[in-house]
Every structure is written in C-alpha cells, then in structure tokens.
Design a protein around this nucleic acid. Sequence first.
RNA 1: GACCCCUUCGUCUAACGGUUAGGACACAUCCCUUUCACGGAUGCGAUACGAGUUCGAUUCUCGUAGGGGUCGCCA
Length: 436
Amino acid sequence: MIRVRFAPSPTGDLHVGGARTALFNWLYARHLGGTFILRIEDTDGARNTEEAARGILKGLRWLGLDWDEGPDVGGDYGPYFQSQRKSIYAAYFAKLEAAGRVYTEDNGAVRFKFSRTSITVHDLVCGDVTFAPTEEPDMTIRRPDGSYIFHFVNVVDDIEMRMTHVFRGEDHLSNTWKHIDLFNALGATPPTYAHIPLILNPDGTKMSKRDEGSAIEKSYMHEGFLPEAVFNYLAMLGWTPRTEGEKLSSEALVSLFDPAEIHSSNARFDMHKCQWFNAQYLRELSPEALLAAARPFLDKAGLSITNDAIAAAAVFSVKEKVSHLTEIPAWVHYFFREDYSYENDVVTKLKAKPENTTLLNAAASALATLIDWTEVSIQTAIEEAAKIASVKAGALMPLLRFALSGQARGPGVTTIAHLIGQSSTLRRIERTVLML
RNA sequence: GACCCCUUCGUCUAACGGUUAGGACACAUCCCUUUCACGGAUGCGAUACGAGUUCGAUUCUCGUAGGGGUCGCCA
C-alpha cells in the first residue's frame, strides 16, 4: 500500500506548481489505490496564516484533489498540522542527540552533523543522482527558541506518517541528499523520490506569485475556468500519456498515470493552451450545468435571472464564443435587461441608411402577426418580410440583430428573438426605430 | 563561485539507432456562414553547437553554450 503526501506551507495562495505537485501525488495514489495525505507545514509562525491554509484546502478541493488523511478528514497519523506535532519532533531530536549527530551553536541553534559520505538519490523521474561530500556547513535543524526547521520536520513526518513515495518539485532535488542523511541517522528507510520539473513563465523565468496564471484561486477560480480543464492542462504539463487526444477525464488520467513517464525538463506555462482546454470543457456542458457554472459571473455583472430555463438557453447560445465564464455576461446581458445600450458604431451604421427604418418596421409587422413563436416561424416571417421589401434576408438580419441586442455579433437572430419573446422583440424594434 | 537537473517547431510534446522528424496550442490563408464563433482544409515552423561511437545518431558518449535549481536559524 503506497502512501504519498502533498505538504504545502501556508504562506500564500495555492500556486500552480504546488497544485500540479499535489495532482501528481493524487494521480499516483488513485492509480495504485494508495493513500493521499495532506499535511500542512506551518512551522514558520511568522509567515504562515490560517487564511492561507484555508485557501489551499479550498483550491485543492476545487480541483477535485480529495485527500484521505489530513485537515478536516483526520486519519491515524495525525495531527496533520506540523505546528501541533512538537512532542513528536522532540522525540526524534533526542534520537539524533543520542547518536551524537547534533551540536549546539553559541546562540542555541542546533545543527545536524552531516555524514560527509557520497549519497545517491534513486529518483523515479531523474534516475540515480549521486552527490559527493561537500564543504557545505552542517544543517540547522532547530532554532534557538526550540522550534524545528523544515528539513528536519519534513523527514520526521515522512517517517511517522509512513510515506512510501515523495513527489515534489525539482527545486528540492539538490537538498534530498540531506534528507536521506537524516533518514539514515534516524535509522529509517528513505521513501522513493520523484522530483517533478518546475513550471516556468512563458519567458523561461521562474514562475512565482504575481505572475500570470500562478495563483489557483485568483487566476482560475475567479477567472471562470472549469476545474476539469485546469486539472487536465496541469496533468499534461510535463507528462504525456500515450493516447491520441489530450483531452482526458480525471478517471482516464488516473488509469493512465505512470510516474516513469514524467519528463525531467521544465515546462513553460501557456495560458492559451489552458484556455483551449477550458473552451473544450465548456462546450460539453448541458444548458443547466453551464448556467450553474456561469451564475456567479452573471450575478457579479448585475444580471438578475428571473427565468432559469431562458437563462440557461441564453448562456448555452453563446457557449462556443467564449473560453472563460467571465466572458459570458458581455455576450448575454441583453437577454436579461431591456435597457441594453447600443454599440457606438452600430448606431452610426444604422443611421447611415434611411431605409433601415422601413426595413425594421416591415420586419416588425411580419413578426407581429405570428401566432406561433418558434425559431422556424420567426425565420420564415423575416424571410417573407425581406422578400416583400426586395432585399435579401441576409441584409435584414444584421439590422434585427442590432435592434434586439445592440450588438454586431452574437447568437443567431432567430434564437435571440425566440428567447426574449414576441412582445420584447417588437418593443425592441420599436425602441430602435424611434432612436433613428 | 560550488554542486545538481535540463535542452526536438514560438509553447506543450511524439518518434525499438533507420520516419518526407508526427500531433496539439498559437499564428496565417481558404471553406462553411445573417454576425461573432464552432467546425473543416491548407500553410508556417524544430532536433542548441562541436566532436566521438556506428553502415546509419533526434536517439548512445564526451565537451561547449544556454536555461533552471540548490547551497537560510524560509518551506
């Protein structure tokens, strides 16, 4: 039974790099039917916040990365906050003391005495990496105030929590020999490591907070991405299953996952591709599901929904025009309000030709007589009105689009008319004619 | 500076040592079309450089260059 963990430090928002690390851990656990553990590494009281910890849990849940042991769910190896595990660290520290592997500095800080031997990391991704003894100073593991430092608590917890594998960012590779040294000194067997490549900015620099696309909550949850899309994109960054397409469900990714296939080179983040995945997933949603996903964004734009069926049809009618949910309000606002404004150049165009008024009135007359208000009947009425006026339907459609939506682009004119209803359609045409 | 990892189209990537070096995103053009899109078609575009091994190297080895990482009383 394999046990893996994601061990974030709550110093800020969940970062894409961290999210992907969590994702690979999760995929591995689910693939093998193992256990995925979430451990919060909050030993730095000065920089950790409860808010950040909550945000990380929120982000992981949003992505669908559920943990089997950890905060909120418990487990047999808790507590899962390092700040609550001080007595455990003290016990392990005593072991090192007994083994004569620590010494105290003048100010009270304690260092771990390296073995100064050659140490090889057997890494699932990087292969065998051997580190020769260095001149590096011994590693501090306890502060003068008695609190313990990352390298030490990380190793102790991995021993205590029975971790079998450690998937983490490649930025830890260079320190891994120190961790193995510590495992050895504590008489424990090190886990199997898998150091996954880092995610870089498009320009190749290290991606950090503030960079575009780096924060899960701010860049994805708030920007109208679907979790499945982000999940899929992140999984494919640095790993490629041998399949034809790239759009794969989390179930498919779980069954295909193989850590040996993870690349050892860094990957650059590509927001375009991530958006493409999002657009793919967006188009698959049913009208109801799309409305549910878009609702918070419609609310935020001040569009009040009075009829769910119509609202669902409205958002559904523009789903192929957007790649994020945040784009939807601008495409559908006129479905929800009668006082929509007209795009500037639209008005100019309408006024340019006096006959436009005549054409709109002709269309209104034809539409006013309809008993059945269906897309087909609307289409027929418009075509007939055009025929009588000796113009092509293609010339009349844009005028109606402007009148009904105030915009030059959007769903089919008949779809708009059908959704807003006959009375609103006639009212909107009249309103437009009066303005000209 | 020392040590570690990495290097195929702009980006993500595929290619038992033998392929016209393939696909996806992006971009461009065309088709479809009442608009914008979607979709379809086509195009653009890469093995960092130099040696070596080999009949043959994107693939194996070494070197160079470039990128990234680590060397905290941060995690």
